[in-house]
């Protein structure tokens, strides 16, 4: 039982990191219609940055915040490439973000080499109902919870957040009332970078991160986001937690070798089922 609880909390922590990536994907997709393939890259950039900054002797807190800001900047630059040029279709933008992800490989290898890097997180562990839980796992869960609450407040209560929702809700109407859809799209990309960065900073102490970790991160994040049709962050959160727990359980009970297939297979099934229903949904929307 205690092993189960341990796997559960561990899985929730993994799921939280996936959820942050997924929420970044959702934020960008809602506002711009673009799926940002470089979303996993932001986490890698932040993770590598934090390992360097801590290595240079900067204190905790400052290092993490700086790393997250670097990721947000990376998000903004990705957005400039992906949607900065008028007339870029969403699919072209996807290919551009793919290019940005590969470009990041080159930059990351030059700056950090091609070996995985780690960073110290919260040391120690606590015992909950007989299960030993790493403190870092609890930190991941807590930070993710706070981030999601702040996101909900931002989108639901602030004027700027509502403007972003308006772009998602009806881009044409957004232009009619004078919203600068492209600039708000860039803001969404920066927000995506920020969220990816938080994920990276949280995960690096748990699993060493290297330049090509982004593929696993983006695929898991996309799998979670697809649960909510790439538009509903709360459903994406649920999907991510489910994915994280399922993968951790699979690994914990000895099926670790197949955890990627489980996640990807699940994603395919969800997408295909949703595609079957989409034709009717689409008609309602129009």
């Amino acid at each position: 039982m205690s092993a189960f609880l341990g796997y559960l909390l561990n899985g929730l922590a993994v799921g939280c990191a996936i959820a942050l990536i997924a929420s970044g994907l959702v934020a960008v997709h809602r506002v711009t219609g673009v799926v940002n393939f470089a979303q996993g890259t932001f986490a890698v950039v932040a993770g590598l940055c934090v390992s360097s900054l801590l290595g240079l002797g900067l204190p905790h807190g400052l290092s993490e915040v700086a790393a997250v800001l670097v990721a947000a900047l990376a998000g903004l630059l990705t957005g400039l490439a992906a949607i900065g040029r008028p007339g870029t279709t969403p699919l072209s933008s996807l290919i551009v973000t793919l290019g940005v992800g590969v470009l990041a490989y080159a930059v990351e290898i030059v700056l950090w080499g091609d070996q995985p890097r780690s960073a110290p997180g919260l040391a120690g562990s606590v015992t909950v109902a007989g299960a030993r839980i790493q403190t870092q796992h609890l930190l991941v869960i807590a930070v993710t919870a706070v981030t999601f609450v702040l996101l909900a407040l931002f989108f639901g209560r602030t004027y700027l957040g509502k403007a972003l929702t308006a772009c998602a809700s009806n881009p044409y109407a957004a232009r009619v009332v004078g919203l600068d859809v492209r600039r708000l799209g860039l803001l969404a990309f920066a927000l995506g970078g920020l969220l990816g960065g938080i994920a990276g900073v949280l995960v690096t102490p748990l699993r060493p991160i290297s330049f090509d970790t982004d593929v696993t991160l983006i695929v898991n994040g996309f799998a979670a986001a697809v649960f909510g049709g790439l538009t509903r962050p709360v459903v994406a959160l649920a999907g991510a937690l489910l994915l994280g727990v399922a993968e951790t359980m699979a690994a914990g009970y000895g099926y670790g070798a197949h955890q990627l297939e489980v996640a990807l297979g699940l994603m395919l099934v969800v997408m295909i089922v949703r595609a079957g229903r989409r034709s009717t949904i689409h008609q309602e929307a129009v």
Binding site: Y159, K162, A163, T165, A166, A168, S169, N170, Y172, A173, A174, V176, V177, G178, L179
Partner: peptide
């Protein structure tokens, strides 16, 4: 100001928010 064909509201937002965004300019 334009009242576009087919109203073109923000369907996911409240009426109050729709109006507030009308004041963006």
């Amino acid at each position: 100001a334009l009242i576009p064909e087919g109203r073109q509201l923000f369907p996911d937002l409240s009426v109050a928010d729709n109006l507030a965004l009308g004041g963006w300019r």
